[in-house]
Design a protein around this nucleic acid. Structure first.
Lengths: 190, 190
DNA sequence: AAGCGTATTGACCGGCCGGCCAGTTAGCAT
DNA sequence: ATGCTAACTGGCCGGCCGGTCAATACGCTT
């Protein structure tokens, strides 16, 4: 379908360059349609941009929700698994990461309802795990989520920046070290 | 001086909107100069953009270097202080944070020489602290730096995004919780 | 006062941007 | 076949984009 071809090509360009740097003429050529056709299907550049973001964020949201729902009994091991899953999702969906970054810089928070749901569910899960004494209880559950989400996000958002830092390891090496610190930090002291 | 007035106004706009969304005509009005004058002083929009970035990154670099140099005897307490200082620097210089973010998205790494120096020095400091048995030794020192830098950075870069997350606390509350996790995670087990 | 370099101006340019529109084609129900 | 709607096209537009240029004002040396 044409609409889809436009959406796909737009996503590639928007992910790469952000909103204002993308030229409709280039996009048209890249999607192999006429410029008019883009307007026919989406009305304006802004609305196309929103359509692209919505689709990507929905993908993100459903993937995360599925992950959360298939989570079983609260346990520290499960938290570790969740962090790993989140990290690998980010690694495998670099487009979403960049789209998030552009969106943050725009100050756009249209995806916040979905995200609040996600974070709320995650934090609630952490709280339950805390109550069972499996995680230390003197930390705001939302902050637990925030710490690992932000670390994973920034790792991939700013990869071009810190991948050349002296001594920096691979994705997996970093994840492992982060998990060492993070898990040791959230486990209860005995 | 006019050149400075242009640079200042440009920084405000670039920080806000990124490179391509900024219109030279708007910038000229905002700096109260003519468009031609901008070209006279900087040659092109691109070169102005680079001048703005260079100035900001130099500010960042010298501030961080000063912080690092006045650091005393390696100790876990000092690491905590460093994280706090970094966090507060980011809080007090939101422009730098956003400039970093735009730069990351552009894939630009012109600031990498300075940054490598900074990270290298920080990592070396961590390594020495590890060798004295004051930090656990099974973690890549660069990763230690990376974890707290990325968390602080992302906290402020994406603030508009997660500040409305349910249960999210203030800057200081988050920092405190992060430090609880981070410090507990990097200290050696007894 | 003359000379010179720098700062500053306003008018102007070619190009291309996002968007529009009149018209054509294709699919599909009746 | 007829009619209707949605998909699609090419051409065009007004506007503004970044950038240029010739001319002028200013400040400093000699």
């Amino acid at each position: 379908m044409t609409r889809l071809r436009i959406l796909d090509a737009a996503e590639v360009l928007f992910v790469e360059q952000g909103f204002s740097a993308v030229k409709l003429s280039v996009l048209a050529r890249s999607a192999d349609v006429t410029k008019s056709l883009i307007h026919h299907h989406f009305g304006s550049k802004e609305r196309l941009w929103e359509a692209v973001k919505n689709r990507a964020f929905e993908r993100y949201f459903t993937a995360q929700m599925a992950m959360l729902e298939e989570a079983g009994e609260p346990s520290a091991g499960l938290l570790r698994k969740s962090v790993e899953a989140y990290f690998h999702f980010m690694r495998d969906n670099p487009g979403v990461v960049r789209l998030f970054a552009w969106t943050h810089l725009e100050g756009d928070n249209q995806c916040s309802e979905l995200d609040n749901q996600l974070v709320g569910a995650g934090a609630e899960w952490v709280r339950q795990t805390q109550m069972r004494g499996l995680l230390r209880q003197d930390i705001n559950p939302t902050h637990v989520i925030a710490v690992f989400v932000m670390t994973c996000t920034q790792w991939f958002e700013a990869k071009c920046h810190h991948q050349h830092w002296p001594g920096m390891g691979s994705d997996e090496a970093f994840l492992e070290d982060f998990l060492k610190v993070f898990m040791e930090g959230v486990l209860p002291r005995d």
